[in-house]
Design a protein around this nucleic acid. Sequence first.
DNA 1: ACCTGAACACCGTTCAAGT
DNA 2: ACCTGAACACCGTTCAAGT
Lengths: 227, 227
Amino acid sequence: MPRPVPRSRRERPAKPALNRAVIIDAAVGVLESDGIGRLTMRRLAEELDTGPASLYVYVRSTTELHALLIDRLLATLDLTWDGRSDWRHRLRSLLTDYGDLLMANPGLADSALVTWPQGPNYLDLVELMLRLLSAGGAPPARAAWGVDVLLQQATAMAAEYGGRGRSAEGQDVADLLAAFEDASPQRHPLLTALGAQEMVGGERGERRGWGMDVTISGIFATPRPGE
Amino acid sequence: MPRPVPRSRRERPAKPALNRAVIIDAAVGVLESDGIGRLTMRRLAEELDTGPASLYVYVRSTTELHALLIDRLLATLDLTWDGRSDWRHRLRSLLTDYGDLLMANPGLADSALVTWPQGPNYLDLVELMLRLLSAGGAPPARAAWGVDVLLQQATAMAAEYGGRGRSAEGQDVADLLAAFEDASPQRHPLLTALGAQEMVGGERGERRGWGMDVTISGIFATPRPGE
DNA sequence: ACCTGAACACCGTTCAAGT
DNA sequence: ACCTGAACACCGTTCAAGT
């Protein structure tokens, strides 16, 4: 019969044994409470009630930590397709969901832009995109490059009008607007005629949807060299 | 008649007066000698023989410093067009030059990806791209969004197979390859059939050229909503 | 106005020493 | 094998005080 756990150990749950899963769970917690800007080895160690050195037994670097975190977040996406609904519509909704996920936390898209995701959910996402492009008639080798281009674009768009909009991450939209307002009518007639607002602005959903259509159409219009 | 400068002041040139231009010049020096990863306020202050606090009189933040640096580097590009040569060819060569510039220094493209350039040369680049897209027949509003998409893509491509290839920046290509090799034939049949090499590899120039053509074709094939 | 020493509040990563 | 205290070598930014 087990002896009763001493009160001091029951009051707060015992420090959980460290492992990769526990660390990534804690990382999600820090992301949600503090933002990715504070998702550091030291902050995470504090959360887990240990020292930063302990994390290096399970995670190679801060970059790997971010890659694992992003993969973990992908698990919340719907990565299925019934194979019958319109492939193009499904591809758009998938990329939209992915972008929304990255925009939900300020700075997350910026991080995703320079970090290659790493984990099972990322593979599922890529596989689904390959299926959808194949369903549309893309030859496999072209679909392979197409996935890369589409993901890169979705991530970049999320970074551009997601997190940085009203953030504490350094620059904001006002800076970009101000930069365009330095355009000179003599030297930059087209830019001046369009106006800063036209360059930067636009309804987010429209702009994003247009970008996706550009790339999807382009993929189907452009054979790979030697294809 | 001026008194002779004391020997101790002549041995090494006098500390230059600080100003924006001097700071950006020094930043280029640090970029070339140490890489952008070490282009910090502290390292730059050391180069200028002062303390970091002094730089804040001229530069608002490290992000602004990087934005100014990137604009400065753009000055080395050929941003002219005679208006007669093939617009599409010129657009491709412009984007290629821009990508090469970012790939010349490891980590630079990563930084450009999350930093909006700021300065006169960036405006010249945008103006030229607007001219080229207009020459191809794009309506102005579509050209505006097209410039954004093209620059974002060129930067992302530079980041993807530029700097990180053989770098000390955290992840490298081998990690990405390894991630794809975890694909399971049951769960990821298309991915498995293609193979990691097909997803990640390919001759850099071909891949980049294909990506540009995809986007350029897509821009001309896709009207803006309500256009 | 411009400049700066010093401080505040952080970082990533390594490694010898412990259990 | 797993864990960690402590250290090393850095960061960005602010601010009171000087010139």
